[in-house]
């Protein structure tokens, strides 16, 4: 098992290299240079060239890449072209925001989705199935900015309970959490429901009934753990995607997260920001995936056996 974890951690190096090369290539192949972006329409060609020279942008792309990566190895992610702040400091400030928003959102989605998903599976064909399923489909179809806006209208405008922007107080996290929780909860619900419906038709569930187990015991002791396996996979993917991808939510609620940071960097061709942001995202993503795999192995002995058996 430890070997497996070490192996997975070691795998992060090629992943980071791969991601960084691809992002760097894309940035180099797209037109425009940082000098023009920073100086805007007012700058003369000479000013632009001088600025590009100062930023090291006049070197060939491969040289810039190696220079940048040598910095990264020494934990120097460069300085933002736009803000002139060290990228590492900004990332260190933004990662906790992104991680907590993603974590709280996913946690809420599980708290909503799993119990309701199980309920609607167990009570299939009844109102207790129809209502949650309808709401889930409705929420899944609704655009996420709309859900976020509606929450804002309710809690900030009408009730005045929560701030509409920023995270100056802990209250600021509540709406992003609810908004993501509802959207992803809807997905978790549908997933849990179909997984549970499939699981309760399995032979081993019938075996448990034939032993004399009650319906409740069958659901919670026998079906639950098996039904949650696919839900874990989806949740892991959602969590990873949310770390850098909650851009709509971050923008809507004015959250200083990684997603908006990278997008802003892309818009202004702020290469160190985009590179630093993407690399930290790749690292976070790899860690989340590893944690999910470990959780999966914990829940499913078949998977655990496979990891324990894998050598090197």
């Amino acid at each position: 098992m430890y070997k497996y974890i070490l192996k997975r951690l070691a795998w992060m190096i090629p992943i980071i290299l791969g991601v960084s090369v691809i992002i760097f290539l894309i940035l180099s192949l797209t037109p425009g240079d940082p000098g023009t972006f920073i100086l805007g329409a007012g700058g003369t060609q000479a000013d632009v060239d001088e600025l590009n020279h100062k930023l090291g942008y006049d070197l060939p792309a491969w040289q810039r890449y190696f220079k940048y990566m040598f910095g990264v190895v020494r934990l120097d992610f460069g300085t933002s072209y736009m803000t002139k702040l060290p990228v590492l400091d900004e990332i260190v400030a933004k990662v906790p925001v992104s991680v907590s928003v993603a974590f709280l959102g996913i946690l809420t989605s599980l708290l909503i989705g799993i119990p309701l998903g199980v309920l609607s599976a167990v009570k299939q064909y009844s109102l207790l199935d129809a209502i949650p399923t309808f709401l889930a489909i409705f929420l899944a179809a609704a655009p996420s900015f709309w859900v976020g806006l509606m929450l804002m209208v309710l809690f900030s405008v009408k009730l005045g309970w929560l701030p509409s922007q920023g995270i100056t107080s802990i209250k600021g996290y509540i709406m992003p959490m609810l908004s993501l929780g509802l959207i992803y909860g809807a997905q978790t619900l549908r997933f849990t429901r179909s997984s549970m419906l499939e699981t309760i038709r399995q032979d081993y569930v019938r075996t448990a009934k034939a032993k004399g187990a009650s319906k409740q015991a069958v659901i919670w002791k026998h079906a639950m753990q098996n039904a949650l396996l696919p839900v874990i996979t989806v949740t892991g993917n959602n969590f990873g995607a949310l770390l850098g991808g909650a851009i709509v939510t971050e923008t809507l609620y004015g959250l200083p997260g990684l997603g908006t940071y990278i997008v802003a960097g892309i818009k202004s061709k702020d290469i160190p920001v985009v590179m630093g942001g993407t690399i930290s995202l790749a690292i976070l993503f790899s860690i989340v995936m590893l944690l999910m795999d470990l959780l999966y192995a914990y829940v499913d002995p078949r998977i655990k056996a496979k990891y324990a058996g894998s050598k090197g």
């Binding site: 399995q202 032979d203 081993y204 034939a210 098996n226 829940v299 002995p301």
Partner: peptide, 12 residues
């Protein structure tokens, strides 16, 4: 039951 392969709960 008919099929022993699927009659046992894989996680217990």
């Amino acid at each position: 039951f008919q099929d022993p392969m699927s009659s046992l709960n894989p996680v217990h």
